[in-house]
Simulated assay, not measured.
Amino acid sequence: MLDSLIDRSCRCINLLIALALAVMVLMVFGNVVLRYAFNSGIAISEEVSRWLFVWITFLGAIVAVRERGHLGTDFLLARLPPMGQRICLAISYGLMLWCTWLLLSGALEQTRINMDVTAPVTGASTAIFYASGVVFAVGAGLLLALDALRIVTGRMPDSELVRISESEELAAVATSLPHGDARPRA
């Protein structure tokens, strides 16, 4: 039940990202057309587009945490037995949670500091800009804590401990070579 709620939340986040990206593209493209065709522009579009870009980045990072889609190396992890994998993953999740806490405390402080500071063009509070870090840290922290709990309690199956995925290019080369060998032969 919790997983379906998280999945629905991530779908909503993806929709927000798509909407923000569409608004950002329209604003920037419209501004470019106005500048080159009419020698004018909309000043607010640059500031809002910059803020949307930051929000898109942090919201996308939440979804990437859910999908375990961030870059990582599992060279050593794949060679360990399941208990060693669990221990290493528990340590790495602890480190990720600590980094997320640092990000949360810094973003929260910046949000508080900038609550009364207004942006030069829109006049909106610049705390909106820094709140993206708070939203990311809370969302990612919850997801990381849930995964860490699953690892420590043994509820994460051994098959999910190491998620090796080759690059798409390497997989395409492997399927085109004889016998599925990924190395070209001399």
Rank of each mutant, 00 (worst) to 15 (best):
G69A: 11
R163F: 02
L104F: 14
V33Y: 15
N39K: 12
L76I: 15
L2C: 02
T118R: 15
L26A: 15
D116G: 05
N114C: 07
M115E: 07
I6G: 05
E67L: 15
M27D: 08
C12P: 00
M96Q: 11
W51E: 06
E109A: 13
L16W: 13
S45M: 10
V65R: 03
A137P: 02
Y93E: 07
L170I: 09
A137T: 05
F38P: 10
L144E: 03
G69I: 03
G139R: 03
E47C: 01
L26S: 15
D74N: 08
A174C: 03
Q110C: 06
V173C: 01
P184E: 06
D158G: 13
R66T: 04
L2W: 13
A43E: 10
I87H: 08
C12D: 12
E46Q: 12
G141D: 06
R112L: 12
G141R: 01
D7S: 15
A90C: 10
E47G: 00
F129C: 00
T126A: 04
E160V: 00
Q110S: 12
F136S: 01
Y36A: 09
V32L: 10
E47Y: 01
T57Q: 11
V65E: 11
A43G: 03
D181T: 00
E160I: 00
V32H: 08
L80V: 02
R155S: 08
L52Y: 07
M156K: 13
R50Q: 12
P184Y: 08
G30L: 07
L95P: 00
R185Q: 09
A37C: 09
A37R: 05
V135E: 05
A18P: 08
L108F: 07
L170A: 12
G139E: 08
M27R: 07
A61T: 13
V162D: 03
T57Y: 15
F129N: 04
L149K: 02
L80W: 04
V117C: 03
L77Q: 07
T57F: 15
G154P: 02
T57N: 13
E109T: 05
G180F: 02
S40A: 15
F38C: 09
P81C: 05
M1K: 14
E46N: 06
V63C: 07
V162F: 04
I44R: 10
M1R: 14
G139T: 09
V32G: 08
F75D: 08
A119W: 05
A22S: 14
G133M: 05
R150I: 01
D147V: 06
A145N: 01
A140S: 06
F129Y: 13
A61E: 11
F136R: 00
R35F: 10
A145S: 08
R183D: 04
S167Q: 13
S4E: 13
E46R: 00
G139N: 06
L16Y: 11
N14Y: 12
R66W: 11
A174Q: 05
T73F: 11
L71V: 14
G41W: 01
S167Y: 11
R11Q: 14
A140Y: 00
N114D: 03
Y36S: 11
S159L: 06
A20P: 03
I17V: 15
V54Q: 06
V152M: 04
A174K: 09
G94S: 06
S167G: 14
C10T: 14
G106W: 10
L52I: 06
V121Q: 12
S49M: 07
V134N: 04
T126L: 07
L16V: 10
R68V: 02
N114L: 04
L15W: 15
T126V: 10
